[in-house]
Design a protein around this nucleic acid. Sequence first.
DNA 1: CATGAATGAGCTTTCATTCAT
DNA 2: TATGAATGAAAGCTCATTCAT
Lengths: 192, 192, 192, 192
Amino acid sequence: MAIREKSKEKRNALLKSTLSLVNNNGFHDAPMSKIAKMANVSPATIYIYFENKRDLINQLYLELKISYTEQAFKAYSENMPVKKAFELIWYNIADYKLKQVEEAWFLSQCDNTTMIDEASRQEGLKHLQPLLDLWERGKKEGIIKNISPYILYAYAINSLVFLMNTQKRNLYQLDKKSLDQAFQAAWDSIRI
Amino acid sequence: MAIREKSKEKRNALLKSTLSLVNNNGFHDAPMSKIAKMANVSPATIYIYFENKRDLINQLYLELKISYTEQAFKAYSENMPVKKAFELIWYNIADYKLKQVEEAWFLSQCDNTTMIDEASRQEGLKHLQPLLDLWERGKKEGIIKNISPYILYAYAINSLVFLMNTQKRNLYQLDKKSLDQAFQAAWDSIRI
Amino acid sequence: MAIREKSKEKRNALLKSTLSLVNNNGFHDAPMSKIAKMANVSPATIYIYFENKRDLINQLYLELKISYTEQAFKAYSENMPVKKAFELIWYNIADYKLKQVEEAWFLSQCDNTTMIDEASRQEGLKHLQPLLDLWERGKKEGIIKNISPYILYAYAINSLVFLMNTQKRNLYQLDKKSLDQAFQAAWDSIRI
Amino acid sequence: MAIREKSKEKRNALLKSTLSLVNNNGFHDAPMSKIAKMANVSPATIYIYFENKRDLINQLYLELKISYTEQAFKAYSENMPVKKAFELIWYNIADYKLKQVEEAWFLSQCDNTTMIDEASRQEGLKHLQPLLDLWERGKKEGIIKNISPYILYAYAINSLVFLMNTQKRNLYQLDKKSLDQAFQAAWDSIRI
DNA sequence: CATGAATGAGCTTTCATTCAT
DNA sequence: TATGAATGAAAGCTCATTCAT
């Protein structure tokens, strides 16, 4: 049991240094040797926990994606009224993207790279199902526009990625007021 | 003295193969040797036209960004009515992102990478000024929400990147009808 | 935990092949790949033992310089009479330069190159101190000319480098008799 | 004629930049492209004047060697008394080595490198003949030690190279007095 | 499970030289 | 004669991964 714990620690340390190095240097220039050094293990040890570099990054991607969606649906229940529910989820996500910047930034780097397997992406998407269900309900109730969930997601949710980027680059900081404005824009874009 | 001159042709071939290789394999695994081979020149020739790999990629980024914005403002004139003008620009951009997929995809890969210098990014942004001016006018006329241009851009424009990605991944194809729906969402998100 | 340790053997093999290649081909045309091949290791292995090429060469320089001075003062003790002591040291050095030709030749190549750091040179010089001390004593005893140690070294010691070169180039071979003549010249140049 | 002159100018510019670059950076890191740039010509132009890099360096070596020996025998005539003659030549050489430091330093770099062809070396040596003749005369007159001219040269002349190095490295500066001391050492080493 | 040494393949970049004008 | 573009070959070095313990 103690050994298992220690192993988990090492695995986490590896994921953490990968996150940090990729964020700071990009997928290129995040070599296994540096990842190992940062996690205080030998390069060879990485291969005990992960098949190869691609696997390491994909596993990290998946873990983050899961923790992201977990947070997205925190306190959410399926019988909340549609707008209230969306509001809750939206602010949850905004919270994640604007506060857990490192994690969110890594995920956004993954959006447009060939490093992530299509399988991981599919798996990552699954966890968003409750949001899609909510929208389906909203459509039936005549509250949400009757359009593809991809469009809904692009406008209502994904726009936050751009705002996170501007914030991370110190171009623009979102305070409470502008966050509310962003929510209003999100809601306007999808509501009927 | 008549000597061989640096050929625009070779430079363009290099930029083109860079685009193609980065798109297919990512910034990692787009080695100079392959870029050279694909452009039918010697590896050493690249360094006549570009300082190094980073420079090559940044120059490509800038050229695409400029051609992108050129297309965005095609047929646009500053005295068009706000909504008409926005509609024109939006469809121009959609056209670019959904038809010139290769170029758009490359640009979206650049959004979240450390390969692009902050200077290049700034330079690339400059060319969007007319859109910001338009929004400013829209605000004065009471048509556009009085919120940060970053938020406006995130919702009205950047959402298209996500839709382009889904399309490129064959998850979802935008036909004329869904494109109009997307425009409606964009417009709803920023109009008062 | 028992793991493979950096082997002195490999390091020595690398230093040896460097010596040999630089001697035969010069600092230019002694590429890392050849050095590795000659030492029967992978090119990458060199970088486990040395930071880079410059470091490799500087370390080799220092090791040889140290072994050179060690031999120079073999059997020397500070309370020998000045002339006897000088004679001992001079013949020690002559022995080294004329018998360990490879090492001496490498060192003489280092005398006039920018490959060797000033720091390494300084470090290398340190070990000659006993000779300088001897000369100081000789001056006090009125045996050695009261002139700068640089001049003393230039005449009494460094002249051997030229003789080594002629020998290495097969222009002139020093037998016992001519060696004694050389010693006489050395001694005459510095004695009062 | 004018064209010939201009050509000579270019050739000299090339030799000069070679001298300067090799002195500052070593034989390694004195690339043809830099040499060309420094001489304000195209890299291709070098190959009009010189066969290849090796030839360029060997020609430079020879020119310097000749100018060196010319200066060595300035004002010398074969019927001067031996000591006076030697004194003249020695100070001529010292003058060259300590004042035309750049040229002397280049030559000393050539002493121990494989870049110089044996043929060039032989050719360079030839010009020293008058000194060897002088020593021969000195031996007959019972003034100079009856030993190999190689030994004589090593002590009487070549020691100056070491002193030049110390001076170039700012370890030791030779003033008039120490120069005279050096001459005394030189003379003592070879006189009977 | 864990390691530091070791590596072949491959990276970016540079070089001496030649080409085409 | 003189050029800047062009290049094949090779340089120094790094990397993901494996080996031996």
